[in-house]
Design a protein around this nucleic acid. Structure first.
Lengths: 233, 233
DNA sequence: CACATTAATATGTGCATGCATATTATCTTA
DNA sequence: TAAGATAATATGCATGCACATATTAATGTG
């Protein structure tokens, strides 16, 4: 028997969670309101509120003013992915990291991105092809467009020391972005770079970030064969 | 000029966020403590606390007792994925959903899962192969193992009406799980099921869930060609 | 000087209270 | 009776205060 400290908001959250798991409160059912729970647990309403707010954040209960709090019918299965800087991901596995710039030039924004980079850009964008290595084995291949209006300093950087990924994180923080994951077949070019045989299924990620209205960068990362993105829920 | 209500915790959060974005507080730098900020904004410390707590949750600042609050050096790029029930995902796109059970039988737990399903299981597990359709076109192929110790009622269900996915969400809630994403090549069997040509790169997801110590289910979902998992950050 | 002890301090959390706000239920009124 | 105004109510949030807790800085001691 685990005694839960019913006087802390985390403790109360655990008790409420158990009731939901044990079907004492059925999905869709209205649960007692804050004041009643506060009385039951002998604590302030604020404390119950904190616990319920946390459960609502994780999607387990739905709260509406005046309508009350009810157990979610379809608890949305949320997973928080941590998308690390590649160098850190590699190094955290105890391997050595290195990257190499395969291509670097200025070019007009490719039509594919005109929609995403809604703002009409005055000039060329910086285009980079980078190969990331883990213990000298290819880890991921990166294609990136950088909006020089958003990060003018990038124009003069070679990105040999610090990767564009890392530099941007530190020098052009974004406010929001779109992220997507998908699978691609390795084509001729990718094979050579990623040590794959033609056709191998590769895990890929694409990301576009903005600072307010201003698009910053577009990246497409294709990982070497066998890559898995993991998380806990 | 956007006037931010500096008297609400969200307003204060925005102001702090701007300062971080504008490098008024550099990454790694210690920011004023709650009491000072409260005085500056003319509000209670609790309100500043709420704003800072929120920024800490999103990983933008690191807070330590006595040590104070500092701007994160590598703001971890977190993304929250919502993994919906397939039916809902399909229907939310305005398409009709249908699923069909291709195989259903009891079998011993495959060795591959002995590690994950740590507990030694007394008996067979329920194995299911399901094909999910969107507007009658194949959407995803599912292979699933269900621990009948955790969900005994599943033994007598055909899962023709409601998919195992949905039934489990409602009838065997989990406390935690492992989730991973990767890419696979379509083999002969998959091709037929998913309307793919041999070798096509397919996006796949694998998930194992537990209720406390008790493993509930293992699923492997392979999506039809072209699938993208999207989210905003 | 190295190490343990103690004090100082910033954040974390709980409480009582009051008011704000969204939403539902009820009561008017045409 | 239907539509609109009004009251009731559950959650949301701000405040001021007190105390808990983790961590650092200062201090004392062998």
């Amino acid at each position: 028997m685990t005694l839960t400290d019913t006087n802390s908001w985390t403790g109360i959250r655990e008790v409420l969670l158990r009731r939901i798991h044990n079907r004492i409160w059925q999905p869709g059912e209205l649960i007692p309101h804050e004041a009643d729970l506060a009385e039951e647990f002998g604590c302030a309403r604020t404390t119950v509120n904190r616990a319920l707010r946390d459960l609502a954040e994780s999607g387990l209960v739905i709260r509406k003013r005046r309508a009350g709090t009810r157990v979610a019918i379809n608890p949305p299965q949320r997973a928080t992915l941590t998308i690390p800087i590649i160098r850190e991901e590699v190094e955290s596995l105890g391997r050595s990291y290195r990257h190499s710039i395969l291509e670097r030039n200025l070019r007009p924004l490719p039509p594919m991105l005109h929609g995403a980079f809604q703002v009409s850009l005055s000039e060329d964008v910086l285009f980079l092809k980078t190969l990331h290595f883990s213990d000298e084995r290819p880890y991921a291949f990166e294609e990136r467009h950088i909006n020089l209006d958003a990060a003018p300093d990038a124009r003069d950087l070679a990105f040999n020391e610090i990767s564009a990924n890392e530099w941007l994180v530190h020098n052009a923080p974004y406010t929001h972005g779109d992220l997507s994951f998908f699978a691609v077949n390795a084509d001729e070019t990718l094979c050579g770079k990623l040590d794959a045989t033609t056709g191998t299924a590769l895990f890929a990620m694409e990301r576009i970030t903005w600072a307010g209205e201003m698009p910053i960068t577009h990246v497409r990362l294709i990982f070497a064969p066998g890559y898995r993105m993991r998380t806990e829920i």
